[in-house]
Write a protein that binds this DNA or RNA. Structure first.
Lengths: 338, 338
DNA sequence: GTGAAAGCGCTAACAG
DNA sequence: CTGTTAGCGCTTTCAC
């Protein structure tokens, strides 16, 4: 495990020069730079990021806090962020909060404060005021993805607009009795997203002169089984079976497709279904969906952080662009039969 | 951002004492310990892990290398490892190799060598000899999960035995024409698991006096769509439609269930299907499966590492126990109809 | 352009 | 049981 001074010796220069040559900070003549690099390679030298961090105060590491791992959206954001970070030479340390409240506390009170990370990305998390404040006072930038956090720069699609677009698609096809599968109380807590999607749904209905019917609302937990159960309720209603359903996530929408099949209803002939996300399985199920681009969101979060961390880093125009989303029409929606 | 010396001052002791009191190494009287703790709390002091690491050589951080994020098994292992690490006060830094060969190189040649991690966990990865050697020579323990790596302690179920058990279940129900959906070349590269599962399948057949029929083999990529396509091939064969299928993963098995439905075949009346993993959706689909316990595997990997890192840490008996797996019979398998 | 030297904040002997 | 004192390996003024 060679140290910087061994490299210095081999190259016949001082450690200061080695540091400059390798890090690119400060001027070093071409020739010395080469000698140093050669020496470093020969010895297989790699800087100790600890020593380096201790000296500079930069960790080259960012913390990502996430509520679960096994939900497609989270994984996709994480993957996007990871790629972008690697490209910048940063590490990603992961904090998964699925372990409950105690774990959350320890992550925020201990782990994140250990000065290990330069900044944090919070995915679909509603941070409390004190959690935010704590991080900000020790000067750790935060950016949120998917969900809004008071006082924090957050990247998220306009959930209201997304829901409105989805609903309009159904309306435009001629549907008038439209069911809605949204989040339940549990998911509202941290996501906050469901209620905005519900809002957009109601707004679109109102624009079309319709009023939302409470009988057509179901809530679920954003999973396939959850969507399945909710959809069965909707489709089973003999008096008011919807001809279309808007599910606030593709996973729930897929559950709804399966529920329809099990009830002998044909999609889209008997019932149209639309979701949100463009989940990796959406195409397989022929699901019409409003795509959002989670990997891109993860990357953007990283870009923003890099801007803040290295003020020179050429700011991407993306910085203040509203996030893209897009209606992708597949085979799960059509005009109502009758 | 108070430092250790501020705490020392406030508590009226030396920094050494503060260090001892807070870390629990070395003896400190009860009263001083209390004073120190109080002072630390009052100032909101948190150790700088960099400084601490630099001084001790311990990072309290372990690297996890994983091929993808959005595959249930990986996420589950990761989640198990994460929980266990948090409990030990360790951070987890994530390296996701889905970015291709260059990324893999940079992870192994740069990132992991920066002395940021105390050890690494490789999930379903076939490390090359030089990758292993590199890490071992700089004294970083490695443990593998799910897949075997030459020269490295690896945690993985006996894939041959698992496949054998699954096949025997089908055989015992009376099936004689059994299809197999395994991995394709792509997945064999890093997983290595598929071929063992195929081996177990063939062995079980042989034990029953049957010989494997090449027409009944299909390969796929471990995803639902992949399993779906493979199953369609199997079920579509008019001459030799299997009465049962063993899929080497639950995701593929679920694809097979959907394929059967689409062909108008009833599961299990017309065809029985069994998978491996006990995926989170297995229950929802009524899928009979051989469960393995990925979260547990992640935890065990952590335990092993902790033993190696802190030799005193009471070794869990689990250390050399073969990993558990278990047949879970649901509604996707039954006797063949005829 | 390059070197000397002073830390970065903590821990670990070594004394006492 | 507690204080003193060297570093851990690198970066960064400040001189030259």
């Amino acid at each position: 495990m060679p140290g910087i001074n061994q490299v210095a010796q081999l190259a016949g220069v001082s450690t200061a020069t080695v540091s400059r040559a390798l890090s690119g900070n400060g001027h070093v003549s071409e020739t010395t730079r080469h000698r140093v690099r050669a020496a470093a390679r020969e010895l297989g030298y790699v800087v100790s990021s600890n020593a380096s961090s201790l000296a500079t105060g930069r960790m080259r590491n960012i913390g990502v806090v996430i509520p679960f791992l096994n939900r497609w959206y989270f994984g996709a954001v994480l993957e996007g962020a990871e790629q972008a970070l690697l490209r910048h030479g940063y590490d990603l340390t992961l904090y998964n909060l699925s372990g409950g409240e105690d774990q959350r506390t320890s992550v925020f009170e201990d782990f994140l404060l250990r000065k290990r990370v330069d900044a944090v990305i919070a995915i679909s998390l509603e941070l409390t005021g004190s959690e935010v404040e704590r991080l900000l006072t020790i000067n750790k930038p935060i950016v949120g993805v998917g969900g809004s956090i008071a006082g924090v720069r957050t990247l998220s699609i306009d959930d209201g607009a997304v829901a409105q677009l989805a609903t309009e698609h159904l309306l435009a096809l001629g549907h008038r009795t439209i069911g809605f599968i949204g989040g339940n109380r549990q998911s509202e807590m941290d996501f906050h997203v469901p209620s905005q999607r519900r809002g957009g749904f109601i707004a679109a209905l109102a624009d079309a002169g319709l009023t939302a019917d409470p009988e057509l609302f179901q809530s679920a937990d954003f999973t396939i089984p959850g969507g399945y159960a909710a959809a069965k309720q909707l489709f089973g209603n003999p008096r008011k079976r919807p001809t279309a359903v808007f599910a606030a996530s593709d996973e729930m929408a897929i559950g709804a497709i399966l529920a329809a099949r099990d009830l002998g209803l044909s999609v889209p002939d008997d019932v149209s279904i639309i979701g949100v996300d463009d989940h990796e399985l959406a195409e397989f199920f022929g699901l019409t969906s409003i795509a959002q681009f989670p990997a891109l969101q993860g990357e953007m979060a990283v870009d923003i952080l890099m801007d803040q961390l290295h003020p020179d880093h050429t700011a991407h125009a993306s910085s203040n662009t509203p996030l893209p989303f897009e209606l992708i029409v597949r085979s799960s929606t059509s005009r109502p039969k009758s």
